[in-house]
Design a protein around this nucleic acid. Structure first.
Lengths: 141, 141
DNA sequence: ATACATGCAAAGACTTTGCAAATGT
DNA sequence: ACATTTGCAAAGTCTTTGCATGTAT
């Protein structure tokens, strides 16, 4: 796991730094799809000198070497996901959290669209929005 | 058509202004999914005093009264669409244009996901990215 | 007549960039 | 030793806001 990012970085001529490892480890051990500021805040305690700029620069590299994907769930900021399989996301419009949608096979839908357009399709993103179970309960009180 | 926006605005207590009509008419007669700046530039000739701030404020209102939807195709700016049906979009990563994906029935996929999550789903957005036919031809030269 | 809208400029949020000091190889 | 990276501050882009003037009802 960690050998993966280490060798991937080195293979592409990037240096292996504590900041880069910390950012990737944090991202790959959460399901919260954090944005840059959330990552920065989370790492403050352990890495007091970490800067937001380093988070952004690191995300750029991790995206480039194929270790993270960038999410755009209709917010003002980008979120990041270390899970590289294509899966839909759902965002709660009340509390703002973004979650994975599991157990859905998107392949049939993707290939249907791929064939319907004359584009050479490279990727896709599916976003749902609605109200999460927790917020539904809050609302009914 | 135009009676629609006129009465919708008035019904909700908004005033009917030349700027609002011009912005909506422009948007509903294009398939280019423009962002705020594109709309602003397009209207410069006919409405020289139009400001970008007015475009943003108007989009906020049009979204609120259900006349436009906001697209987030993985770019830095939001795009707007006066077509309110749910349909996928595809963005060319070379020339940046965003097009509709036609003749795709998303209902089965949407309801499959709706049932798979415990969210109360309010809407969804599907984005594909790839290379458009025009750019494919350019690349092969 | 009055409340709302416009348009300018300023502010705000998110992200990128430049550069000197620090670090990995 | 050398090239790359960090972290700060400044700049850049997109969007929102405040306010005086103008406009729709």
């Amino acid at each position: 796991m960690e050998v993966c990012i280490t060798s991937l970085l080195r293979d592409k001529g990037f240096k292996v730094t504590p900041q880069r490892l910390a950012i990737y480890n944090m991202l790959s051990s959460t399901k919260s799809h954090p944005n840059a500021e959330m990552i920065f805040n989370e790492l403050q305690a352990m890495y007091p000198t970490m800067s937001l700029a380093t988070v952004y620069k690191t995300m750029e590299i991790l995206k480039e070497i194929g270790l993270v994907q960038v999410l755009n769930a209709g917010e003002d900021s980008f979120r990041y996901d270390a899970v590289m399989t294509n899966h839909p996301h759902v965002r709660c419009t009340e509390c703002g959290k973004v979650e994975d949608v599991y157990d859905i096979n998107i392949d049939a839908f993707v290939s249907e669209v791929s064939q319907g357009t004359k584009y050479q399709i490279m990727g896709q993103q599916f976003y749902f929005h609605g109200i999460c179970p927790t917020c539904q309960r809050k609302n009914s009180n």
